[in-house]
Write a protein that binds this DNA or RNA. Structure first.
Lengths: 249, 249
DNA sequence: GGATTTATGTCGGGG
DNA sequence: CCCCGACGTAAATCC
């Protein structure tokens, strides 16, 4: 873990630090007195004031004041950052094309500059709700349907592990696919692969080649589904249970 | 101008600095390795990773990773920040009510903490907004069409206020809908609601129940329209004028 | 890759 | 306070 930080640097020093941080792919924060101008889809100007500039290695740039959830000015990811000293000020410029947009921050004075190499926790942005959804279903299986009885989670199959495997009130095998938010047809396809895999597995166990396909039901548990997904569910005879990870009931 | 900053503080030190900064109403940035959990309108959990936490004196809290314009987790303005050392970690919690929401950031380690008193400079002047487009149309109505004469802006109707209301060279009422950028079918629907409302209003005034529907024209002013929107415009007999807020002519 | 839909949208204005 | 619409919306998904 590497953090570099300088307090009250000269513009020249700040420039060096910035360029090194760009090179390393650091996440950068700059406190200072600056003016901001933007030109692109719209145009804006911001007079001198103390603000926080955040520069990300993916090209995003954010100018924050002391108020609001939204940055007062910004540049989206995919932009390119450049720094220079011009007219006695530190100028940080972030540009992108398509559409052409430029954000320019001119610092009269830099109070504090910090840069951190971001190592972990980038992609493990596990939005914890699918886990919650599984917990809910296991604790209250009647939410899926009356009489449903979960047997196994992450049950292996030739199509990969299925979220929840169980049996319904009649003892018929049920494959449950969990999605923490509104789903499209892809989720139905995923469910279908598990169901087909399980049918083949059961047929093989029964030595039942050529006979009727074994009955295996599929249920998609998700807050909602797209129209197209709903159609596919109907085509395949699968059920849909409207449940979201956070609701109380 | 006061900036305080500490490098690799102990949790206890960091806590002191945070509480002082809260007291002073500073804008705060914290680099460190942390886990994040949120519970409220939705729920989420983030595993350990290096991130940037920004705390604002208005109650806003932002957790930024190295990617994206949006914070990975946040709390809106109006929340309350609290800091404490719990279980050997620095815990920063931001809560609000209505709706009840809690953001909790637990730092395994704080790499850098900075706080700045922010003064002035929140006056942003933005050009190229829908407001600018309205100004252009009012100053140069011939850009909509020769002979067009604006009568009223934000004219009320049962479908809500229409952007610009006026008459054409023949004296026929015209409803103008302004969009600052390329539009889809939704904008045509919005325009259609205004036109229908105005037709009903005029029919009612004329005591003209059952007669021909009064003539009211609809014009969509926008830089461009999608194919689908173009189709709907044609269906309804509405016009489209290609104008964008920033162009000089 | 463009069109469409969602979002813990955020934010401001008007009744 | 709620409702509605704009936003330099951003971001994911559909097609």
């Amino acid at each position: 873990m590497t953090v570099t930080s300088v307090h009250d640097p000269s513009h020249r020093e700040a420039l060096w630090e910035l360029e090194d941080a760009f090179e390393r792919g650091d996440l950068i924060s700059v406190f200072g007195r600056c003016t901001v101008s933007y030109e692109g889809r719209a145009a804006s100007d911001l007079g001198a004031g103390d603000r926080l500039l955040v520069l990300k290695p993916d090209g995003a740039a954010l100018v924050h004041t002391d108020e609001g959830r939204q940055p007062v000015n910004w540049q989206p990811p995919g932009s390119e950052h450049h720094a220079a000293v011009r007219e006695g000020r530190l100028r940080v410029r972030s540009t992108r094309s398509d559409p052409d947009e430029t954000l320019t921050v001119r610092f009269d004075r830099v109070h504090q500059l910090s840069a951190m190499a971001v190592t972990g926790g980038r992609n493990l942005t596990l939005h914890g709700s699918e886990e919650d959804l599984r917990t809910r279903v296991l604790e209250r299986p009647e939410l899926v349907e009356p009489g449903f009885e979960p047997k196994e989670t992450e049950r292996p199959s030739s199509a990969g592990p299925m979220d929840v495997f169980g049996v319904d009130a009649d003892g018929t095998p049920v494959v449950v696919e969990l999605k923490r938010r509104r789903v499209g047809p892809d989720a139905v396809g995923q469910l279908a692969r598990y169901v087909r895999a399980l049918r083949e597995e059961i047929a093989a166990e029964d030595g039942d080649d050529g006979g009727d396909t074994p009955v295996v039901r599929g249920v998609l548990v998700a807050p909602s589904v797209t129209d197209r997904a709903r159609g596919r569910l109907a085509d395949r005879g699968f059920g849909h249970v409207a449940l979201d990870p956070t609701s109380e009931e």
